[in-house]
Amino acid sequence: MMGLGKEKLLLLYKQMLSIRLFEDRIYQLFLQGMIPSTLHQYQGEEAIAVGVCAVLNEDDFITSTHRPHGHAIAKGIPMEKIAAELFGKVTGCCRAKGGSMHIGDYSVGMLPAIAIVGSGIPIANGVALAFKLRRTKQVVVSFFGDGATNNGSFHEALNMGAIYNLPVVYVCENNFYGASTHISKVMKLENIADRASAYGIPGVVIDGMDVLEVYKVATEAVSRARDGKGPTLIECKTYRYSGHSRSDPANYRSKEELEFWKSRDPIVLFKKRLFELNILDEEADKQIKSEVEREIEKAINFAIESPSPPLEIALEDVYA
């Protein structure tokens, strides 16, 4: 299967499941009033973060968005550190100063997530520029949504990434909605990937619900970037099951639309595939699921038991 061994396939599956169950559990805790502020959740889009990050080395980097939990888990931030950050605890990956929208961990190659739509893309270029000038063969992936591609940052950044031939891959998670606005209201194109042609780089449209397709196309784009051949824009068609953020009941979408996408659920699809390939059976699936649940509970308990931040750290880290 695309050079992927059984172990790697199961790892992809487990990671997708981790993201899904983590997000579901976090949402419960949020409803119980245990998590401050708001949440932008990743259920439905798991195949993208997992399929792309599976291609990357530990010293490759990613930039993320206001919806970063999936990217964080896929790039390898320990769930304890993510959960603690969501709870606003000092043991969080950003010492309780980032929160849900700014999850990041430099040590595993994830910059603090950038919650201004589109703004991470020019910064990803800079990371790539450093790799290029130092000839390190590292690559950076910039994740962003469909909404970002209507922002000037996207256009300036794709043009600059193209002219400098930077080792960067632009991954657009097209979930068809910018907050409550459907993409058809704000874009004449059917495919965002067409915008790549304006900058002279390849643009590819893929099924963002199929982790193996994501993995395959990301492999090509990352190799291309690593070999000094420049950026690629990958558009992954996907769907977010939740509203834009926790307070959003998503009344602007039809039930049928949601059901359609849920019928193509990335985890269900991949599980079926693994069953067909005799890599997974009910017993093994149960085992993986309970393992993931244990890890999540451990992370949640860690977060709950962690101390609140001492007040004086609010005044630290402004300047280096």
Binding site: P122, I123, A124, N125, G126, V127, L129, E156, A157, M160
Partner: peptide, 17 residues
């Protein structure tokens, strides 16, 4: 290019690295 957002953004990313 005449892309001030792009200029400052690329400089930030390079500086982080």
């Amino acid at each position: 290019p005449i892309s001030e957002t792009g200029i400052v953004g690329i400089a930030i990313g390079a500086a982080i690295m």
